[in-house]
Design a protein around this nucleic acid. Structure first.
Lengths: 120, 120
DNA sequence: CTGTATCCGAGAGGATACTG
DNA sequence: CAGTATCCTCTCGGATACAG
């Protein structure tokens, strides 16, 4: 019995959890929190050039509400806020890592899709 | 050096690959193809009650175009079409598995969030 | 520095009808 | 059976301005 995914028993819960990772920036944000990394709001802005403040704040809030990311505010001026993975969030690292490895394997299965035109 | 994710070198490629998994149904579909499972169009309709035909076909096409899912058409009537993971798609299984394990760990970190009403 | 508020366009996704 | 076509709605996400 190699079945790992049982639709009737797990699907409902799995879909819920999966939704927490949806959105254009969630995974990207999480990757930058990988491995215990701690980032500030402004760090993300630098690390993820394409993201808007609205999206960054919004995604961060959702991640926080879902218990994946922890937000720590330092009561000082100017404000300082740190983001890091919660315990459960860190449990996501193996999956993040597997995803990364999969991404890297793309070249192995689809070599030089945008071939080297250097030879021309 | 424990860094696994290198923004400057991998981000561009990783984001691309990550996009292939975005969308409300992609992962769900993939989970049903887990472990070498082969499914027909109508199987998915039964397995994923909430999905519309449009979305099912569309997501399947994209997955196919991205080289994650293979589509096999049997030239007969009535038509028969089978879907399965490509080689690269199967390389996703470890990640899918890790995601599943993570989802299951939710209870461990957030026990009985919707408390047992059976006691009432 | 770390956000929030508002407006706006694009596209995701749903419902329904139709076809080879 | 396995889709496609069309329409419609709603949310996602970007841009800009403002605030504690």
């Amino acid at each position: 019995m190699r079945r790992i995914y049982t639709p009737t028993s797990a699907a409902s819960g799995v879909e819920d959890v999966l939704k927490m990772l949806e959105g254009r920036w969630k995974l990207i944000i999480l990757f930058h929190l990988f491995d215990g990394n701690v980032q500030r709001y402004s760090d993300f802005e630098k690390l993820i050039p394409g993201i808007s403040q609205k999206m960054l704040a919004q995604q961060l809030r959702q991640l926080e509400a879902d218990g994946i990311v922890a937000r720590k505010v330092y009561p000082q001026v100017p404000p300082k806020v740190e983001y890091r993975l919660t315990e459960w969030g860190q449990a996501l690292c193996p999956a993040l890592d597997a995803l990364l490895k999969w991404a890297e394997q793309k070249e192995a299965f689809h070599p030089s899709e945008h071939a080297d035109d250097a030879s021309a």
